[in-house]
Design a protein around this nucleic acid. Structure first.
Lengths: 218, 218
DNA sequence: ACATATTTTTAGATTTGTCTAAATTTTAAT
DNA sequence: ATTAAAATTTAGACAAATCTAAAAATATGT
């Protein structure tokens, strides 16, 4: 598999193309910042190789082989992210770009040993689950902070938007994964929220609340 | 810099093209298992970019910029080798292939932090020196075992041949970097040597002796 | 249902890095 | 000094991955 092929497979996976749902060439092109015609070419090629189901004018989905491939790439990406944060003191807004490169390194032993060095982490620095070696993918029971009922205790477990801008905003406001979090009040006017975070209270916009994942504290 | 360009620069460096000495396109082609005509094309391109001095029909050498680039790639390659051995329990015959991929990852912070994680190593697992961040390159005072005088105490510090075959042979015979080593007798007939290694004695062929680097014990 | 807008594909071109075969230059031998 | 051999370059072709512009298919609005 070439690097370009791997990037297409990964993108289709992230767009939800594993669940028999068809993803349009336009959606893929937009996500990858390329042209739809390029996507069509690659779709044909990857269908030929048995990684995609491709229906002309309809879109693509991953085959079982394609899903397996995608999970392996996602596993590598997320393990490298953990490595960068845990072993090399990268911040969570710095890891993505480098992991994009590292995820293409080919060596099964490397990834197995890395997994071991990191103590078999289950989640990456953004709270996303790391697929196991055999492709198990444990999505955590989580919901957006914006959908939490009032006065229910939760724990911050992930972010939806992983852009540096958003992550740095969270850092600046001392919001981190693992923090206790709770919605105290919803403002009808702009859907902003008054929240309890640790022992502080603060007001956050709806845009923040729709990009923070919370798990109910049990 | 593309991956292909980096590989050319690195190969020319290893063939000695840094010392104003001209390296032939044939030599480069052979080393890289490619065709001389491909090397010519790339030589023109890299000369255009200011990385090589290229004289038609004569060969190429690295410019200062080219040398700097080469040292940076070699530094990355060797640091990754140390990482693989020290942190992921790779054996010294397994590291090369993976480091060939890792050396192309682009992130200055990654390499600085890796260097720090490994405690700023001076040599890679084969005893080759690791260039510093600013391109300092400390070649160790060493000589081939075959050139050591009789009964002079030495320490094994490196290998010339880094093939898996040779490295595995050394492992099998418990010859490792850091071992005390001493030539006891030279056989005129086939230039084989009787050596003292640690507290054992053994007989080794000239081919082994011309691929092991030793430093005089002082 | 039909015209129009949108999406998707095709056709042909481009860039990078490679190759083969032919031409050119250098080297070596007598 | 010529000539043969070896090394090197040029010219033209190819595969991968991309692009633009035009054509084809699908979706949408009234």
């Amino acid at each position: 598999m070439t690097r370009a092929e791997e990037n297409y497979i990964k993108t289709i996976f992230h767009l939800g193309g594993n669940k028999a749902q068809l993803i349009s060439t336009n959606a893929i092109a937009e996500q990858m910042e390329t042209k739809p015609s390029s996507v069509t070419d690659m779709a044909k090629k990857l269908a030929e190789k048995g990684l995609l189901n491709y229906i002309r004018y309809q879109g693509v989905s991953l085959t079982d082989l394609g899903s397996k491939t995608a999970l392996s790439i996602v596993r590598k990406h997320r393990l490298w992210e953990v490595f960068l944060v845990k072993k090399l003191d990268f911040t969570w807004d710095e890891v993505h770009e480098v992991a994009e490169q590292l995820e293409h390194i080919k060596s099964e032993k490397l990834i197995d040993k890395l997994d071991e060095l990191l103590d078999f982490p289950k989640y990456d620095p953004h709270g996303d689950p790391i697929p196991t070696k055999d492709g198990q993918f444990l999505e955590r029971d989580k919901q957006l902070l914006s959908e939490m009922p009032l006065n229910v205790k939760g724990i911050c477990v992930g972010v939806k938007d992983t852009s540096a801008t958003f992550l740095k905003f969270l850092d600046k406001n001392a919001i981190a994964l693992g923090n206790a979090i709770q919605v105290l009040e919803k403002e009808d006017f702009d859907d902003s929220l008054r929240i309890q975070i640790g022992d502080r209270q603060m007001q956050i916009s709806n845009q923040i609340a729709t990009n923070l994942y919370v798990k109910k504290d049990s």
